[in-house]
């Protein structure tokens, strides 16, 4: 198990008396992609918000590695059309003044494949471009941990696969940890090291393959979905212990030298 970037334990959250999360726990290690899945209202976004520090839980504990830099990609932006702002300017809001003008913004836009919208008003770009711009903003801070809330929202199917591939590629390149929230199981399963299935509590957790066979998962999503999902699990480039954790394999270390020219 790689060194923990962030670890939440025993998270209880309730909104006006209604419990939405009980004893929630999640851990993201260096270079690990962890996905929170579950049906609507299962507390996935709530869990992510607690880990981001946006929401104070009623009970529970969030431990972050010292000096952890988090890049956050929200579900959607709600910018008023009355605010005239270009994509480039939007990105600059995530930078400190001293980092401005080193081509950093173009570099992250290139990395996420939307260099061409740099000068467009942000309200004019497509849903898919928007997701990539939000991802670029999260990368701008050179984060140790990326938190992505429904990263493929509003993106067509082909685009979704590309976006997940991009996220994997970013993890491989930068070696950062990734915490994703998703409700669409199919693609996420293939792009994830560790899945935490929530339904107001942690139903089950582990390697995608293990989770998709777990009785609680099958009960939650149905036999058909579970059976269909196991087809997606091909790449056996590592071994798992009984909990589905990776115990050996190819979790690589990279030099963190990025050229932000």
């Amino acid at each position: 198990m790689s060194e923990a970037l962030i670890e939440a334990t025993g998270i209880d959250v309730s909104f006006s008396g209604r419990q939405v999360l009980k004893a929630g726990e999640a851990r993201v290690g260096v270079g690990e992609i962890v996905t929170l899945i579950g049906p609507n209202g299962a507390g996935k976004t709530t869990m992510a918000r607690v880990m981001l520090g946006l929401l104070k839980p009623d009970r529970g504990d969030v431990k972050r590695r010292a000096d952890l830099r988090i890049g956050y990609m929200p579900q959607r932006l709600n910018i008023d059309p009355a605010l005239p702002i270009s994509v480039k300017r939007f990105l600059s809001l995530g930078l400190s003044r001293s980092d401005m003008g080193h081509g950093l913004r173009h570099a992250v836009l290139k990395e996420t494949g939307v260099d061409h919208v740099a000068d467009s008003p942000i309200q004019r770009i497509s849903g898919g471009e928007m997701q990539r711009v939000l991802l670029a903003r999260a990368l701008l801070r050179n984060p140790d941990l990326l938190v992505l809330d429904e990263p493929v929202q509003g993106v067509d199917l082909g685009g979704q696969a590309e976006l997940y591939a991009l996220i994997r590629g970013i993890r491989d390149q930068r070696g950062c940890g990734v915490l994703m929230v998703s409700h669409d199981l199919h693609m996420v399963m293939a792009a994830t090291d560790h899945v935490i299935c929530l339904n107001r509590h942690v139903c089950c957790a582990g390697h995608p393959e293990t989770v998709s066979r777990h009785p609680e998962f099958v009960a939650l999503f149905g036999e058909a979905v579970a059976a269909e999902l196991s087809i997606y699990q091909h790449d056996h480039d590592h071994e798992h212990d009984v909990h589905g954790n990776v115990i050996s394999g190819h979790r690589h270390h990279h030099d963190h030298e990025h050229d932000h020219g």
Binding site: L52, G53, L54, I70, Y72, P74, L77, N78, I79, L83, I85, F90, L93, G94, R137, R141, V147
Partner: peptide
């Protein structure tokens, strides 16, 4: 301005 664009993003940053 940052908070006006997205408050939660600003908080996380």
């Amino acid at each position: 301005l940052s908070a006006t664009v997205d408050e939660e993003l600003a908080i996380v940053e």
